[in-house]
Simulated scan of single mutants.
Amino acid sequence: MNTTTRRIRNATAARRGTGDSPGRAATLVVLMGVTASVGCEGLSYYPYDCKELSECPGAACTGQCVPLAPLGFDGPALLWTGPGEEAPECPARAPVEVYTGYAGLESSHVCPECACSAPACVLPTGVTASNTQQCQGPVFTPVDAPANWTGTCQAAETVIGPASLRSVTIEPVTERPCAPLPPTTPAGVAPTRWTQVARACAGEAVPGVCNDPGLTCLPSAAPPPPGFQQCIMHLVPDDGKGVHCPASYPDKKVFYGRYEDTRACEACTCTETAPSSCSAWVSLYQDAACNPGEMFLTIAIDPTDALCTSVQASMANLGSISASWMTNAPGSCEAAGGEALGSVEPADPRVFCCQPLPGGRLDE
């Protein structure tokens, strides 16, 4: 054995001793399914150049003897990376797809701005007549005000005569608080996508035909097809920080099997910064048109409970109601919340260590 051969074999043995402890979480079958009768010539793409040796590293290998994957790695395999829509099929020499992963995670997370409705003073919803004192019934006859009543005259559907009018219940004024408004823009969780796809393809190696036990025979000595690199895969999932690529496969790449999406938007809230002050007059009339001369009761109403009052004029009819503000001073509030919560993070990482692309350039 000459000096050059001995140096390469010693280097190969050293490479075999590098890497992490094995963990067979996934298995890449070694490459190249097409047998090509290629001898020692044309091997300069790989780290072993037979032209420098007095004999080939594997006399029985008709293709290419390449370094075995170090401890903790599997392969080699042909790896292609690029946009998903451009992903090629596995080549004939490595027809089995053994890994699919992704890189370049893109996402956005913009939550809509929170806003609050304005607080308001709201007039009573109407009155209810009772045929007994103290609003005890048993006959109750309502005179309902319309929604969003402004206090204008509201006639009873049927005039309530003296026999049914001994007392009235007047609903309170309402201090309507501010409340979160529906967002004017969609929720801020936008679609997530990967910009890069990784596809590892494997064929079949021929073991035991290389003179160096640190090498294995690939049936083809041709460089990988365009866009592919010859790579080995770290067996244990890792984000790449704890993996050191061997000198024979120096180009480190990290891919992921999926992502975890925990994005959400914090709920909007409204906090009162100034209270409302609301009170009103409610008037009852004998006729259906709220004529001032027909008014027989006017009473002040505030935001407390409904008020029951007796009707002294036992011969009175109830034909209509009206209302006017004593105090109409809505307060104010402040919106809060709407913060973006969570994130999109890649998961299930895998590290590949690759040989340089043709010409010695590493794939950046």
Rank of each mutant, 00 (worst) to 15 (best):
Y102A: 06
V127P: 02
P88L: 07
P138F: 07
L78D: 00
G42N: 11
C90P: 01
L123A: 00
G39A: 11
R93M: 08
Q133E: 08
V139T: 09
V168F: 00
A163G: 06
S167V: 04
G72Y: 01
L68I: 09
A60H: 15
P83H: 09
G104E: 12
G137P: 00
G101T: 10
G84E: 02
G75F: 00
V127M: 02
N131W: 01
V143E: 03
A94R: 04
F73W: 02
G42K: 14
P162S: 01
Q134I: 00
A156W: 02
C121N: 07
P119M: 12
P47C: 10
P91R: 03
A69V: 05
L43T: 15
W80T: 04
E89D: 10
A59M: 14
E41C: 14
P57K: 14
A103W: 00
T125L: 01
G82R: 06
P112L: 01
P142V: 01
C90E: 00
P146R: 04
A92C: 07
L43V: 09
C40F: 14
L79G: 01
L43R: 11
A120W: 08
P119I: 07
A129I: 07
E97I: 08
S164T: 09
G58Q: 04
A92W: 12
V110W: 12
A77F: 09
H109C: 02
P142Q: 03
D49I: 14
A156K: 01
L78M: 04
C135E: 01
A147H: 10
L71D: 03
